[in-house]
Design a protein around this nucleic acid. Structure first.
Lengths: 238, 238
DNA sequence: CGTTCCCTTGACACCGATCAACTCTGGTGG
DNA sequence: CCACCAGAGTTGATCGGTGTCAAGGGAACG
C-alpha cells in the first residue's frame, strides 16, 4: 500500500536505544508500516475504546494520552514524544485516547503485523516491554506527584521531566524549550484547575525561577527548580 | 540450587491467561527459579534502587508497590496479587519498592535467566508485555482517580477494583472479601490522610453501602458502589 | 474591527489537612 | 487475673490550600 518512507524508524530507534533493534527487527517493523498521517493541534489521534485501527507511532510533535470521566473531568496521564507510540496499550486491551498537542505526524503500523513481528523477533518484544516499563515508571512518578507533592512541587517536577525528556529527544536547549501546552492542559495533567495552575505558575515566575512567554519556557534557576520538585531523572530509563 | 517446587507456575499462568505460555515457555521460566521466600506483614520485599536481586513472583498474599518522597510521604502506586511480579520494572531500570501487606510467599526468579528466556521465547516476551500493559492500564485509572474523582468516588472505585481483581484471582466471594489493608494504607494509596480516609469510610457505612469489620469488607449495595465510583472493569484486561 | 482563545486577577466557599484526644482491641508481663 | 502497652480506629475543632464564580485584558485571526 504505502511507499515505505522509513525516516520514522530512526526516530523510533533513537527512543528505544540504538542497540535495541538489529537489522532483522528493523525490517520486520518496517513491514508493518501502512502509511502516515498528520493531525492538527487539538485533534484526536486515537479515540477511546478498542478499535482495529493501526498503531500510531509519533514522528514529530507532541501528543497527550487522556482518560475521561463520564461527567466532570479529563486527565492527561502522559505526554507522548517522538519515537513513542500513542497507543501501545492497544496491543493488549484498550484504554484511553490520545490527542495532538501540536501539529503532529505519525506513522501508521498495522497492529497484527506488529504482533506477528513480535512473535518472530524476541528482541522486538523485549524492546517494547522495556518501552512499556519505562512508561510505567513515568506513570508511577506522576502518581507520586499527584498523591504526595504539593502543587508548586508538582509543577516544578513536571517542568523538569519535560525538559529532560525533550533534551534526550534533541528538542530542548540547556535552559529553555518550547512548551506548547496551554495552562488548561497543564491543569489537566496535574489534576487541578486552570485558574490555580496560573497562580502557581505566577509564583515560580515571581521568584525568578522560570519565565514562560509565547509557549517558550526559560529556566533561570535550574537547580532551584529541580530542588523544589525533588526531581531525580533516574526513573527516566531507556 | 533450589528444588523445583513449581506450584507457583500455575498461579503465574492463571494471571497471564491460560494460553499465554506454551510448554516450552513454561519450562524456560521454570528454569529461572532459584528459590522461595516468605515475608511477614509489613516487611519490605524489594527495596528502592536498582539491585541485582532476583525477581519476586507473588505466590500467596498481598503486596503493594510504593514510591517514597525524600521527606513527606509515601505513595502506594499499585497492589500486587498472586501471579504478579513485585518488581517487573526491574527488568528495565529500577523504580520503587514493594512491601508485604499480608503474610506473603514469593518465588525468586533469576533476572538474567528471565531475560535469556525472553530472548529465546517470543511468546514469553509478549506475555510479559501484556502484563506490563495491563499494569499500565491500572496506573492510568489510578491517575484518573487521583486527579479527577472526588474522595468518596475514589474510595468506591478502589474497593470495586480490588473486589474485581480478587474475584478473578479466586480470592473473593460475590459480595465480600478480606481487605487486609489498614486505613493508613488505604490513605497512602489514595493520596489522602488516614483521618480523612476514616471519615469517607464512615460515610459509605452510614449510607448502608458497605461494612468493614475486622479486615472483612461486605458490599451491601454493589450497584450503588460501582455507580459512585463510576467503575467499569474493562480496563482490567488480561 | 470583531471574535475567539488564552491568560490573569479578585472574592468567597469548601474540602481535606492538621492537631489533639479518646476508644478499642490484642498481646505481654507482672 | 489484672495492669500495661502498642497499634489501629474514631471523632471534634480549626486552618489553609484549591475550587468556583466572575470579570477583564491581550494577542491572533478572519
Amino acid at each position: 500500500m504505502a511507499i515505505a518512507n522509513n525516516d520514522w524508524i530512526e526516530v523510533f530507534q533513537r527512543r528505544l536505544g540504538t542497540n535495541a533493534l538489529g537489522p532483522a527487527e528493523r525490517d520486520a517493523v518496517a513491514q508493518a508500516y501502512v502509511g502516515s498521517r498528520a493531525f492538527r493541534r487539538g485533534e484526536t489521534i486515537v479515540g477511546e475504546g478498542n478499535t482495529d485501527e493501526p498503531l500510531h507511532l509519533l514522528k514529530r510533535g507532541w501528543a497527550a494520552r487522556v482518560c475521561m470521566l463520564e461527567v466532570g473531568g479529563r486527565q492527561i496521564t502522559d505526554f507522548v514524544l517522538p519515537g513513542e507510540l500513542c497507543d501501545l496499550s492497544r496491543l493488549n486491551g484498550s484504554f484511553g485516547g490520545a490527542l495532538a498537542i501540536t501539529q503532529v505526524n505519525v506513522a501508521l503500523l498495522d497492529r497484527s503485523a506488529v504482533l506477528r513481528a513480535i512473535e518472530s523477533y524476541p528482541k522486538l518484544g523485549l524492546a517494547l516491554l522495556r518501552l512499556a516499563l519505562s512508561e510505567q515508571a513515568t506513570l508511577r512518578e506522576w502518581l507520586l506527584c499527584l498523591g504526595q507533592r504539593e502543587t508548586r512541587e508538582h509543577l516544578a517536577h513536571l517542568l523538569c521531566e519535560l525538559h529532560e525528556r525533550l533534551r534526550r529527544a534533541g528538542m530542548a536547549a540547556d535552559h529553555e524549550f518550547d512548551l506548547p501546552l496551554t495552562q488548561e492542559q497543564i491543569a489537566e495533567a496535574m489534576g487541578i484547575t486552570p485558574v490555580h495552575t496560573n497562580r502557581v505558575l505566577q509564583g515560580l515566575r515571581k521568584d525568578g525561577i522560570i519565565s514562560l512567554d509565547q509557549r517558550r519556557l526559560t529556566i533561570h534557576q535550574p537547580a532551584q527548580l529541580k530542588n523544589i520538585g525533588e526531581f531525580d531523572a533516574s526513573y527516566l530509563t531507556a
